[in-house]
């Protein structure tokens, strides 16, 4: 009764996260599609590897698969930072066209060069939320002198351009840092503000489509080539349904999430198109400039994304 092939999948998310749930559903469907020949074991919540280790673990075949955040590739695949360019591709109609596009193919090729094969683009979030205690961060001027927990080198150049002071505090210290006021503000996805309970220590939330976070479902290429075609197609089909189910959730700004956050007592502002535009003009040019400086195929990718 033991399956012929096993797919061990590592990810960093708590079990209640929407992508973690989509991966659970993927596991069930992939096993079903294989007619019992494939066994999928999920190791979630960093129990096996820390987030930063997943890439190497898959590339070297320590596990067969992992789900990796687009922010996590850092300078190793700098092109993946395209999603972190403020307001560049956060609109639902762009995201809908993205998987299967030439832009996606270019990035998949970059990942392949780094030893992993991407089989799905799982949409994690396209709604960012600034949280703060003293005053809401709505307009560029509000960021002046604010100590904010940054999002990595690229996006942080945009914060610096507005006069904010980004910090690189480790995730485990953020909650306490916000509580005691070592940092004034944070930025994460709407659902993460809720899941990480930042609302307990922050008064204001400003929801805006600042960046997009994808998770790539990546597999070890040698293992992938070794699978029989039927099993591989079963996995691909399951991956596609996971991709579609998450894309549907990201199709619109989540009014339910906003309501849920309001119920916690936070004062929530949803950016109007004008407010969005103001922040875009303050941040995007600087970040694009930095992006082009640090990537080989940056311009090409930028052009492809702008065609979406």
């Amino acid at each position: 009764q033991a399956a012929d092939y096993s797919m061990r999948l590592s990810h960093q998310l708590p079990a209640s996260h929407h992508v973690a749930k989509a991966l659970e559903a993927f596991a069930v469907e992939a096993e079903k599609n294989s007619g019992g020949r494939l066994d999928v074991q999920i190791f979630g919540g960093e129990q096996l590897y820390k987030a930063a280790q997943n890439h190497v673990a898959v590339a070297r075949g320590q596990v067969e698969a992992a789900s990796i955040l687009s922010l996590q590739w850092g300078g190793t695949v700098p092109e993946m930072q395209i999603f972190s360019i403020p307001y560049l591709m956060t609109r639902p109609e762009q995201l809908e066209k993205f998987p299967g596009s030439p832009a996606a193919a270019l990035l998949e090729d970059k990942l392949q060069q780094k030893g992993v094969k991407s089989i799905a683009w799982l949409l994690d979030a396209n709604d960012s939320t600034f949280t703060s205690q003293k005053a809401p961060l709505v307009a560029p001027a509000d960021f002046k002198g604010v100590k904010i927990r940054g999002l990595g080198r690229l996006v942080d150049t945009g914060f610096i351009a507005m006069g904010a002071a980004p910090s690189t505090m480790p995730g485990s210290e953020v909650y306490q840092g916000l509580q005691t006021g070592v940092i004034d503000a944070g930025v994460s996805s709407l659902s993460a503000v809720y899941a990480r309970r930042y609302y307990e220590v922050q008064k204001y939330a400003v929801v805006t489509p600042l960046i997009t976070v994808y998770q790539n479902l990546v597999v070890n290429p040698r293992w992938w080539e070794g699978l029989p075609a039927e099993v591989r197609n079963g996995v691909l089909a399951a991956a596609k349904s996971a991709e579609l189910s998450l894309a549907a959730q990201g199709a619109e700004q989540d009014p339910e999430g906003v309501a849920k956050l309001e119920k916690t007592g936070m004062t929530v502002t949803v950016h109007t198109p004008e407010q969005r535009k103001a922040l875009e003009q303050a941040m995007q040019p600087v970040v694009v400039g930095e992006f082009l400086k640090t990537t080989a195929d940056g311009q090409k990718l930028l052009d492809l994304v702008r065609q979406l």
Partner: peptide
């Protein structure tokens, strides 16, 4: 050497 072969860089600044 594996990290070198795929040109991994540290995450961070």
């Amino acid at each position: 050497m594996f990290s070198k072969s795929i040109e991994m860089v540290s995450q961070g600044y």
